[in-house]
Computed example of a mutant assay.
Amino acid sequence: MSRSQDPHKTFLPFGNPFRMMKAKGSNLSPKLLDLLNTFEETLSARLNKLKPANKKDVLSFSWMKAAIESLCGIHADIKVLITALELPVCDWDDKWIDVYLDNSVKLLDICIAFTSEISRLKQGRLFLQCALHSLTGASSNKFVSARSSLDGWRKHVGSKNPKLENCFSVMESLARTLDLPKIKNSSKGKVLMRAMYGVKAVTLFVCSAFAAALSGSAKSLSDVQVSETYLWGETFADLQTFVNTEIRNSTNGSFAVLKEIEDVVTGVEKLYPVVRDCVGVGPVGDEELMKCTLDLEKSTEKFADGLNLLGKEVDGFFQVVLTGRDALLCNLRVGGDVFDQMRTNHRLDGQAVR
């Protein structure tokens, strides 16, 4: 796991992409304005629930799980809005479709990177289980085996995951597309693009925080500037500042970011010298050995449970994105020529969907 202390790096700030909308709801019918308000109020409520009472809870599997659950809900909300707008895909501007398909591929790639890192951490857990199993055995070489397993964990947790490292550039690319196409003659299109901006901004924020927590580096954090003309803008800015500040403070000289990983690392560092001193001479200080072993066993169990739950949420989000993409492509098939054109630009056997 990378622990490099990279210089503070942020994505380019993005303002309100709908500058032509001088006031929210300008030129919108009461029905469209109500749909937009409902979406933005729901988004604000979801963001508000993500701010924990204790800042240290940000860097935990439980917060990350809640953040991904919120993303799934937000992506479901945009589907509800699209249905309510009664704006058939055949009426979508080609630019909207192009942006949506391109962004969905990026999100799938990011999900794959997260899944890869979660799988890698699960592999590291095997070293811990082997060490604990060795210490409960009666073999004369149990301390040698335990020390070897602990060495394996230390090496594994300190290594880098290329897929996770590569997803940082994917998120930068995603950030550059936040400024969506301008809408001139379609009120429904304006509502749709405005809502999609909210989905993209929150998705980018959560994914960047997720990557920073998993990598142990704040270099992937985004600082998206959102206009207060959105009903969710102030809540978003408050949450983003809260979360990013805590992550940056915690990565300053820290070996691990996530609390569950930090607890395991601490347990290993306490147990390792005790096991090392026992090699060749037998147990010295049985009470200390038992205490350190029990502490590591407890932290390893919490670590494993958190990983499993988080992995399921990431898989769920992957399916949400993939389902939405497939639904759009199915609707495009009805358009015949339109689908053929989009299929040329966005191959289904691309880097994420293969």
Rank of each mutant, 00 (worst) to 15 (best):
E172Q: 11
S169N: 08
T177Y: 13
H133E: 13
K184F: 06
V170N: 01
S186F: 01
V191M: 07
F168E: 12
R176E: 14
M171Y: 00
K190D: 05
R154D: 12
K155Y: 12
L164I: 05
C167P: 01
V157Q: 14
A175D: 07
V206L: 03
I112L: 11
T136P: 00
L174A: 04
M193F: 06
P181C: 08
K155V: 14
G189L: 08
H133R: 11
S173Q: 12
V157A: 14
F143M: 09
S134P: 00
L192K: 02
P162D: 10
D109S: 09
F127H: 15
K122S: 14
K184P: 00
P181H: 04
S159Q: 15
G198P: 02
L132P: 03
A138T: 11
F205T: 00
C111I: 00
K182F: 05
R194W: 03
A138L: 11
K182N: 10
L192W: 11
M193D: 10
P181Q: 06
W153P: 04
N161E: 14
V144Y: 06
K182E: 15
R120H: 13
Q123R: 14
K142Q: 10
E165P: 00
A113Y: 02
R147G: 03
K184S: 04
A195Q: 06
A195F: 10
N166E: 15
K182G: 03
Y197F: 15
D151T: 12
D151P: 02
Q123M: 14
